[in-house]
Each structure stands twice: as C-alpha cells, then as structure tokens.
Computed example of a mutant assay.
Amino acid sequence: MNVLVLALIGGYIFHLLHIPIPWMLGPIVVIVMAQFVYKGPLKWTPLTIDIGVVIVGTAIGVQFNVSLFNNIGSILFYMIMLNIILIASSIGVAYLIAKWIKVPVKSVILGTIPGGLGQIIVFAEEEKVSDLGVISYFQVIRLLLVVVVVPFIVAGQVMSKHETVAPMTSSLLFLIALSWVCARVSQKLHIPVAYFITPIIVIIALQLATPIAMPPVPSYVMAIAQLLIGAHIGLMLKPDMIKLPVRILVAGIVSAFALIILTLGSSFLMLFAMNTTFATSFLSTAPGGLDQMVLLANAIKADVSLVSMFQTFRLLFIFLLILPLLKLFYHWLEKRQNQQQVFEKKNEVRVKV
C-alpha cells in the first residue's frame, strides 16, 4: 500500500474538517489506523523524513529573529532552568511508574526522557539496558500523544492563522539545497539532529554575514514538510508494540499525559518571566519532537525563533549532558550492585563454614 496516498488522504480529510496542522495530524492518524487493518508492508524511505526536517530547518532559519541574540544571557538562564525542571520531572514520573509496572527504573527513565527515539535506543543498546520494546513504546506513544493533543490545546490560535500566499522562488530552492548539502556533511560528523540544526545555523550565518534578503516561505511548502514528517511519525507506532502487557500500555499513556501537564505548568513560568504568549511558552517547553513543535509554532504564528531555540537546546541538553550523566550513573550503579553481590556471596560462605 502506498504510504504517500494514505498521507494525502489523511491530510485532505483533516483539512476539510479544519483540524489544526492537518497535513501532519491527518497522515499520522490514517497511517496508524492503516497499520492495524492492512497486514501488508507499508514502505516509506528514511530520505523523506530527512527532506521534511531540512525544509522545516530552512524555513526557521529564514524566519529567525536574530535580535534574540541580544538577550541570549537571560534566555540561556531560562532554558537551563526549564530543562532542569523537565528532566527532574521526567525522572520522578519514571521512578513512580517503574514501581507500578515492575520494570527496571533505568529502562523507564530512558523511555520517559523526551529525547530523540533513535539516540535513546542506541544509548540503551550501548549500556545493555533491557526492555528495548518498553523504551520504544514509551518514546513513541509520548511523541504521538503530544503531537495530537498539543495542537488542540492551542486550537483557537491555529485556526485563526491565515495562509501565506507567496510563490516558490529560486532563492528559496537554493537555500533548501544548500541546507541539504550542509546537513549531509554534518550528519557524517555525527552532529546531533543535523538535518534540523544545520540549516538553521547556515542560514542565520548568511543573515548575519551578508545583506541577502531572505525569501518568503509559501504555506504549501510547510504543508509538504508536515506531510513528510507526519507519515514518518504514523509509521513509528508498530502493531507489535500493542502486544506489550496492558499495564505497560497504560503506563506509557499516563507518563505522556503527566509530562504534558508538568510542562504546561512550567510554561506559565516562562510566560510570566519572559512575557511571551501562552502558545510560544507552551510549545517551547512541550515534550514533543523538535520539528513538530516548530511546525505547529509556524502554523499559529507563535514566536518560531524562540520555540526552535528552546526545543533545540533541550535536545542538546539531553544528548550532551543528561545521557553522559546517566552513563556515569548506570556504571556506578552496576559497580555497586556487583560489590553487593560479592559481599552477599562472602556472607553465604561464612554462614556455611
């Protein structure tokens, strides 16, 4: 079955129903449903998601408000503070859920921390963490629920947005192509979320270094990005995941909603401290995918620059700080458990003697 056809059908239906970000939510819902009905293969090349993310990154770079760098000190403070709150909340939720579903805490922590699925799974494999199926399910169900629920929390603002009527220009095509080439190079250098971060950095650098006027981004270009990314997300929830125990299935949903509620609360701190709109503060702190939250910010005319900064910082914060700290913690925990086992064996020998 053709995934592109399903994505187009879903996007068009959601567009007719005036549902927020229809060209992303429509493909997600239709493709998830199709996987549980259609037993044949649904093929979607990974290249498409990369193209979609590069388009989003390019659009953000074009629209980026470089004047934000004038207040980078205070922005950095709030980014650090809100990420500490988010990570601490994630670990707290993971600890409570692990006790409930009788799964090792370190597995649930990796399932609950809002990082990229691919990087989290690689980390879990390197650390020989068990329950990869549980980790994958928790990450995927959180992403799906955030992408589906968050747009309706700001639905009124979404539907008040007028489409940008602008032609596709050769300069925009050039910027997308340049972003693609640079992103490919960045990926080979193992830069985190290269297909999103690289276009933003390259185009901001062009804005700062040259007098080149940035071209407008037509609404249909962003709709194409929504469709490509939405189809990929829809394929992430595999029918096999539903074969997990009911308690784990429910726990994944509970943890996702717990994080949404917690970030909703922390977004009010950002709203009052930085004098932003509710939509901007909520999308900046929401535990969803970077590209999806930025796409939604673009759809509702929230501060795309601020949302992209906060979401990008969160991923880098997790990749460059939290995961290395978890690695050290897991190694310390394993060493302690081994010492405890040796101590218990010595006691058993003494008792027998």
Results as ranks from 00 to 15, higher is better:
residue 57 G to Q: 11
residue 67 S to N: 14
residue 107 S to H: 10
residue 212 I to F: 14
residue 128 K to M: 10
residue 48 T to K: 14
residue 244 L to N: 07
residue 168 M to V: 15
residue 63 Q to N: 12
residue 345 K to Y: 02
residue 67 S to C: 03
residue 28 I to A: 03
residue 63 Q to G: 07
residue 219 S to D: 12
residue 348 E to N: 03
residue 35 Q to R: 14
residue 138 F to V: 09
residue 110 L to W: 07
residue 237 L to S: 13
residue 122 V to E: 01
residue 28 I to M: 15
residue 187 Q to D: 13
residue 122 V to C: 00
residue 162 H to R: 12
residue 98 A to W: 04
residue 179 S to M: 13
residue 75 I to H: 05
residue 254 V to M: 10
residue 346 K to S: 06
residue 316 L to D: 03
residue 264 L to P: 00
residue 337 Q to D: 14
residue 53 V to P: 14
residue 71 N to D: 15
residue 158 V to H: 13
residue 148 V to I: 15
residue 271 L to Q: 14
residue 295 L to H: 05
residue 163 E to K: 06
residue 10 G to V: 01
residue 175 L to Q: 11
residue 264 L to A: 12
residue 57 G to E: 12
residue 58 T to M: 05
residue 168 M to Q: 06
residue 118 G to H: 02
residue 86 L to P: 00
residue 321 L to P: 08
residue 72 I to S: 14
residue 263 T to S: 11
residue 2 N to Y: 04
residue 14 F to Q: 04
residue 71 N to W: 07
residue 207 Q to G: 12
residue 182 C to D: 01
residue 348 E to R: 07
residue 300 I to G: 02
residue 252 G to C: 12
residue 285 T to R: 05
residue 276 T to C: 15
residue 57 G to Y: 11
residue 77 F to D: 02
residue 161 K to W: 01
residue 333 L to D: 15
residue 147 V to H: 01
residue 36 F to P: 08
residue 204 I to A: 04
residue 3 V to D: 00
residue 211 P to A: 11
residue 49 I to E: 03
residue 262 L to K: 04
residue 57 G to H: 12
residue 261 I to H: 07
residue 319 F to L: 15
residue 123 F to N: 04
residue 129 V to Y: 06
residue 225 A to L: 00
residue 101 I to S: 12
residue 332 W to D: 15
residue 191 I to K: 05
residue 16 L to N: 04
residue 29 V to W: 03
residue 56 V to D: 02
residue 285 T to M: 15
residue 48 T to P: 00
residue 139 Q to E: 06
residue 139 Q to F: 05
residue 197 I to H: 07
residue 241 M to K: 02
residue 240 D to Q: 14
residue 185 V to P: 01
residue 182 C to E: 00
residue 228 L to I: 01
residue 213 A to K: 15
residue 295 L to Q: 08
residue 74 S to D: 01
residue 8 L to G: 06
residue 77 F to A: 08
residue 353 V to D: 04
